[in-house]
Design a protein around this nucleic acid. Structure first.
Length: 279
DNA sequence: GTCTATGTTTGCGG
DNA sequence: TCCGCAAACATAGA
């Protein structure tokens, strides 16, 4: 489920774990299709001896700034990083890539579903240029968001999930933001009133900031779900108001929350707070 | 055992 | 442009 807050958490924990400044001495690839843009042997050869200068985030991509190249990692559904000492490495059957670091530690990449993709490239812009605005940046102003919505005739939920407009939102935080702003997921972007745009703009920032502050959302109790690099779980699942809470009362009005499908995605709303017809 | 659902993204066809 | 659908995969739960 890594969305913006989860990816941001991973970036922070990688930095805190002290991998910045270390050199990748060797790489092993257990699932070659993980590397989107290079043949397996070339990837392993090319990443070796490069130093990790800096780690950042763009949308849901982790961005590793290396000596010569940029390593872009998209975790998709189940990708995760684990850091351990070389002696303990090798326990997981879902390990897809292993990076040996110059301090004797190993950075393992696990991915149950195998949907995650890595790009090792000197031209990261080619991959990142399709992404829209960063929702926690100053660029994402109310005016920018309003124009974005008014320029398109789209259903609001699929629109918010589309990374080319806003980068980093996923199913969980979109449902939460729409509930907070009291907007039905089937509403059209162009139909939103000035006040609704203001509420939604504010709600998007709020749910993401809260997610980051709470170390991300970890659903379920299984390893398949999101865990941070340190193995610690996020805490934001306790703060969710609608996501996967169908059948429970709305914390705002008491009405029973329901689940529906919008844009082929499971969608959770309060039928009382989020009316289909604009007010 | 079988069927359905699952957090993401891309590409196809209408 | 937008929308629905299927696919890339594996696993949990009914």
């Amino acid at each position: 489920m890594p969305e913006l807050p989860e990816v941001q958490t991973i970036v922070r924990e990688l930095a805190e774990s002290g991998v910045i400044g270390l050199t990748i001495t060797q790489a092993q690839l257990f699932w070659p299709k993980t590397i989107a843009n290079l043949p397996p042997d070339l990837f392993c050869q090319q990443i070796s001896a490069q130093k990790i200068e800096h780690i950042s985030r763009r949308g849901k991509f982790l961005v590793f700034h290396l000596t010569n190249d940029t390593l872009l990692v998209h975790l998709r559904m189940t990708g995760k990083f684990l850091l351990c000492h070389i002696a303990q490495a090798g326990a997981s059957s879902h390990e897809r890539v292993r990076l040996y670091l110059s301090d004797g530690r190993v950075l393992s990449y696990e991915d149950q579903r195998k949907f995650g993709r890595w790009h090792l490239t000197s031209a990261p812009t080619a991959v990142l240029q399709t992404l829209g605005v960063e929702p926690l940046s100053a660029e994402f102003s109310l005016a920018y968001f309003s124009q974005l919505c008014q320029r398109h005739h789209a259903t609001i939920k699929p629109f918010l999930l589309n990374q080319r407009y806003i980068a980093g939102l996923g199913n969980i935080y979109v449902d939460e933001a729409l509930w907070l702003a009291k907007i039905h997921p089937l509403r059209s972007t162009a139909s939103l009133s000035k006040n609704e745009l203001k509420q939604l703009h504010s709600a998007i920032k709020e749910v993401l900031q809260q997610g980051v502050a709470n170390i991300g959302t970890s659903l379920g109790a299984k390893r398949a779900n999101y865990y941070s690099v340190s193995g610690r779980r996020g805490e934001n699942q306790q703060k969710l108001q609608v996501f996967r809470r169908q059948g429970l009362p709305c914390q705002r009005c008491g009405q029973t929350l329901v689940k529906l499908i919008v844009g082929q995605r499971g969608t959770h709303i309060c039928p009382n707070c989020q009316k289909i017809s604009p007010k």
